[in-house]
Design a protein around this nucleic acid. Sequence first.
DNA 1: GTTAAAGTGGAGGAGTACCTCCGATACAAG
DNA 2: CTTGTATCGGAGGTACTCCTCCACTTTAAC
Lengths: 189, 189
Amino acid sequence: MQTQPGQTPPGVRRPQRADARRNFDALIAAARDAFAERGSGASLEEIARRAGVGIGTLYRNFPTRQDLFDAVYTDEIEALCRAAGDVADLPPWDALAAWLRRFVGYLATKRAIIEEINRDSAMIRGARESMYRAADALLTRAQEAGLARTDVSSDDLLRMISGLTAGGYVDDAQRERVLTVALDGIRSR
Amino acid sequence: MQTQPGQTPPGVRRPQRADARRNFDALIAAARDAFAERGSGASLEEIARRAGVGIGTLYRNFPTRQDLFDAVYTDEIEALCRAAGDVADLPPWDALAAWLRRFVGYLATKRAIIEEINRDSAMIRGARESMYRAADALLTRAQEAGLARTDVSSDDLLRMISGLTAGGYVDDAQRERVLTVALDGIRSR
DNA sequence: GTTAAAGTGGAGGAGTACCTCCGATACAAG
DNA sequence: CTTGTATCGGAGGTACTCCTCCACTTTAAC
């Protein structure tokens, strides 16, 4: 074990060789699906099977369950941050609402991520903070335009929305209704 | 196995003998704590140990995990329904808000119950429906008084609030802030 | 106090998940 | 093509959970 890696992830590194990289990526994809379906306790052997690799390969790339989870989670968060860029040129309120809708979409089937979203994990903190910064920029803009109430923080907002999503709704229409109610609560009056 | 019990619960019955009743109640209490701490996958052996009984006793009283879960769940729901009576003489909006606060309080530490609240289980359906009726009465009253928006159902409402609670908040003040936003979203304008 | 019936509890078999280890394999540099 | 090396994969040891079974204990009716 090298003693001064200096990278962000403690033990997880995308491998060099082509076949190894394929396996690495397949494992993350399989883990994403498995966590979404079975929750964060999904069997690691099943994840390896889904990815079409041996259990040993899983453990070499991700020594602990948390390492694997962090890799999946970081991917998702990065996608959300990119989405914040996509809405930057909408009017303040629309930008906030659109991004929150996308946030909900990303989280909709990902129970494990919702469960874990508030937990602390040394290496994840950075990714989560950049997501919070993205949300904060959108919320602040809406607040400065006088469109959003000023007594909520972006932390309040994301916890509220991710909680809402955790419910497991009868259908998309219901989820949309509930999201509308939440947005109306945030709008200043 | 008796073939025509005719009771509401399929296999669960509060036992007759004093010592057996003590064990039965201790098991439900221990299960409530264990489910709250560890989620619905808590080890049954640990529950038996916490209750101070053998694993055999647990299985005699609750042949399946679901039976035990149902017993805990039904208890909680009944308490919530009683709480709906307590707020009946408040003004419509205050009654709804007060009951939802109590609802949140009950659910606050009960991850397992939140997880399960939308799942279907033959014998639980009755209990859940009476809770929904209680919520519906309060919401309808507020709607008829022109205080609550009419485009949400009690089902929407409870899913939304129980989702909010699932988040895991930094502190009570944050949870209260988020609940206030949700209530403002429900209030008609 | 006696006794039949109800209830107890934990040993142990079966199944499953975790994780390590190392002989076999596939890549890529020469 | 050859060869050194990175990588693979799954057998198997360990640990944990589920659940059954039955010799023993407690209750409460008489």
